[in-house]
Amino acid sequence: VDYIVEYDYDAQHDDELTIRKGDIIKNVKKLEEEGWLEGELNGKRGMFPDNFVKEIK
């Protein structure tokens, strides 16, 4: 499942992704941690907030 970024987010920890509006995040999975998703961007896998992105259908 792929998501498109709607709002910029700067990573706060090493396991998070810095994302920018218009980025496409690939292979996204829901995490047990409420409010977070995990996906791949530019060869890096990491977490990001689910309210900054929208699923591409």
Rank of each mutant, 00 (worst) to 15 (best):
Glu32Asn: 13
Val1Asp: 07
Lys54Phe: 03
Lys44Asn: 12
Gly35His: 13
Asn42Thr: 09
Arg20Thr: 09
Gly22Arg: 07
Gly22Phe: 01
Gly22Gln: 06
Asp8Gln: 04
Glu33Pro: 13
Glu40Tyr: 07
Lys29Trp: 04
Glu16Ala: 05
Gly22Asn: 15
Leu37Gly: 05
Asn42Met: 11
Val1Arg: 08
Leu41Gly: 03
Glu55Met: 05
Gly46Glu: 01
Lys54Trp: 02
Leu17Pro: 00
Gly35Thr: 07
Leu37Trp: 10
Glu55Lys: 06
Asn51His: 07
Leu41Met: 12
Asp50Tyr: 06
Ile19Glu: 00
Ala11Pro: 11
Lys30Ile: 14
Tyr3Phe: 14
Asp10Phe: 12
Gly46Lys: 03
Gly46Phe: 00
Leu17Asn: 00
Ile19Ser: 02
Lys54Ala: 09
Glu38Pro: 00
Tyr7Met: 09
Glu6Pro: 03
Asp50Trp: 03
Lys21Trp: 15
Glu6Gln: 11
Pro49Met: 09
Gln12Glu: 13
Tyr9Pro: 01
Lys21Ser: 11
Tyr3Gly: 04
Tyr7Asp: 13
Glu40Val: 07
Pro49Asn: 15
Ile56Tyr: 01
Tyr7Pro: 00
Pro49Gln: 11
Gly46Thr: 01
Glu55Trp: 00
Gly43Thr: 06
Asp8Tyr: 03
Glu55Ala: 12
Pro49Gly: 05
Ile24Asn: 06
Met47Gln: 09
Lys57Glu: 09
Asp14Met: 11
Leu41Ile: 11
Thr18Asn: 11
Tyr3Thr: 04
Trp36His: 03
Lys26Ser: 12
Glu33His: 15
Tyr9His: 07
Thr18Gly: 03
Asp14Arg: 10
Lys29Gln: 15
Lys57Tyr: 01
Asp15Met: 09
Leu31Met: 14
Glu33Trp: 12
Val1Met: 12
Leu17Gly: 00
Glu6Leu: 12
Gly46Asn: 02
Ile25Thr: 02
Val5Asp: 00
Ile19Gly: 04
Ile19Gln: 00
Lys44Ser: 05
Arg20Trp: 00
Tyr3Asn: 03
Leu37Asn: 05
Glu32Thr: 15
Lys21Pro: 07
Val28Tyr: 01
Pro49Ile: 06
Thr18Glu: 06
Val5Arg: 00
Glu34Val: 13
Gly43His: 15
Asp14His: 14
Asp50Val: 11
Gln12Tyr: 13
Lys21Leu: 10
Val28Arg: 01
Glu55Asp: 04
Glu55Thr: 07
Ile19Thr: 03
Gly35Pro: 06
Gln12Arg: 12
Tyr7Leu: 15
Val1Trp: 05
Thr18Pro: 04
Glu34Ser: 11
Met47Phe: 12
Arg45Pro: 04
Met47Ser: 09
Asp10Pro: 05
Lys30Ala: 08
Lys21Phe: 07
Ile24Pro: 02
Lys54Thr: 13
Tyr9Phe: 09
Glu6Asn: 07
Glu6Asp: 06
Glu33Arg: 15
Glu34Pro: 13
Leu17Ile: 09
Asn51Ile: 09
Tyr3Trp: 13
Asn42Pro: 03
Glu55Tyr: 00
Glu32His: 12
Glu34Lys: 13
Asp2His: 08
Asp8Phe: 03
Ile4Asp: 06
Thr18Ser: 11
Val5Tyr: 02
Lys30Phe: 05
Arg20Glu: 05
Thr18Val: 08
Val28Gln: 01
Gly39Asn: 01
Gly22Val: 01
Lys26Thr: 15
Phe48Thr: 02
Pro49Lys: 06
Glu33Ala: 08
Arg20Val: 13
Leu17His: 12
Ala11Gln: 14
Asn42Phe: 06
Phe48Gln: 00
Glu55Val: 15
Gly22Asp: 07
Pro49Trp: 04
Tyr9Ala: 02
Glu33Asp: 13
Leu37Gln: 06
Trp36Lys: 07
Leu31Glu: 07
Trp36Met: 07
Glu34Gln: 12
Ile19Met: 06
Thr18Tyr: 01
Lys30Val: 15
Glu33Ser: 12
Val53Ser: 07
